[in-house]
């Protein structure tokens, strides 16, 4: 559907190096990278705002590398939404309908449908200056979706919103995707990636480092950078079950993990920082509600200390000091106990 082949572009202080990836029909593809990694540049290249030095861009099997911006079947939502300040919300949304062979009433009808979908039907006659950040982002989305783009390009669409609005907009994006819209979304936020993506690519310094499903990328980071950037080795897809008293996340092989979250039950991910995992050689009474018996699989020194991998039905990575390893006498094959608090578990809704 959308394919980049060896796209390169040199600037004075930055370059894209042989960027290749492909977004399939119906994908929610997230390009994950730190700010300055070249994410926005990739989107602008696809949109035609920047011409690559070399490489090819194909959309629906058609080479559009040097196609005019206005003829590309994509829709780009800018990071700061770029809603036209001198036009009303309705005029903004209808902007791309200009020159289309349809009556005024038909156009009005389409604009109304889109506004309803984006839950902004009451704003059509307002000027953007009077809208909140979340509303502006919806106007920008509506203005783009009305073109029925083959692929929707989103540049950090959630970054300027507060937590509550982020949740609302995520839900909306998921809904748009569920209706069949192919989306390429760039962000620096791994939570966003986990929450929305069906496929992920990680970009650093203008290069794609790894791509695949969220589980593949998060569970098997290919390089130090990816591991560090994602920052979470303890990452598990789970099914959340909430009862009156407890909230338990069940991993794929039904290991129950206690978490603290307001989220309703359903599919999601949990993340536990290696620093938050305690190890002991005997069962001990602590305030931690998650206690598992397991076997040490690997002891691996790294920059932050020593990483100990324990198989407790699921593979848990603990980051502890060299002294602790010696004190506990940990060796591969030893039995040991793993403890972490329910509050140390981060749950991300899918």
């Amino acid at each position: 559907m959308l394919e980049l082949r060896n796209i390169s572009k040199r600037f004075d202080d930055f370059s894209l190096k042989e960027v290749s990836f492909s977004v399939e029909q119906g994908d929610y593809f997230i390009l994950l990278g730190e700010s300055g990694a070249g994410k926005s540049m990739v989107l602008e290249t696809i949109a035609g705002l920047v011409a690559p030095d070399s490489g090819k861009i194909l959309i629906e099997d058609k080479d559009v590398t040097y196609e005019k911006i206005q003829n590309r079947p994509i829709g780009l939502v800018f990071q700061d939404h770029a809603v036209f300040p001198h036009l009303t919300v309705g005029e903004n949304i209808a902007y791309s309908l200009h020159g289309k062979k349809m009556s005024r009433e038909e156009k009005h009808e389409i604009v109304k449908t889109i506004a309803d979908e984006l839950e902004i039907p009451g704003l059509l006659n307002r000027k953007p200056g009077t809208l909140s950040g979340g509303e502006l982002q919806r106007v920008a989305l509506g203005r783009t979706l009305i073109q029925q783009p083959a692929c929707l390009l989103l540049d950090e669409p959630l970054s300027s919103l507060d937590t509550r609005l982020k949740g609302d907009l995520r839900r909306l994006l998921r809904e748009i995707h569920r209706k069949g819209q192919t989306i390429l979304h760039v962000t620096h936020d791994y939570e966003e990636a986990l929450s929305l993506a069906t496929r992920i690519a990680v970009i650093d310094k203008g290069e794609i480092i790894q791509s695949g499903t969220p589980s593949a990328v998060f569970n098997h980071p290919k390089s130090e950078f990816v591991a560090h950037f994602i920052g979470m080795k303890n990452f598990f897809p789970v099914k959340l079950v909430t009862t009156d008293q407890t909230v338990v996340a069940y991993t794929g092989n039904n290991i129950p993990i206690r978490v603290v979250t307001d989220a309703p039950g359903g599919d999601g991910f949990i993340l536990i920082r290696g620093e938050d995992v305690l190890l002991s050689v005997k069962p001990v009474e602590t305030s931690a509600t998650n206690n598992f018996r397991g076997t040490v699989v690997e002891i691996h020194p790294n920059a932050g200390g020593v990483e100990v991998t324990i198989d407790a039905g699921i593979e848990i990575h603990a980051l502890i000091t060299r002294e602790s390893v010696e004190k506990l006498g940990l060796k591969a094959g030893n039995t040991c106990w793993v403890h972490f608090k329910a509050t140390a578990v981060r749950y991300i809704n899918k």
Partner: peptide
């Protein structure tokens, strides 16, 4: 960015000039 946004919305450069 506003001019770029208008281009990505399918407007010709002439239309971008006159409407944005």
């Amino acid at each position: 960015r506003l001019e770029k946004a208008a281009l990505t919305l399918g407007a010709s450069p002439f239309r971008v000039f006159f409407t944005i």
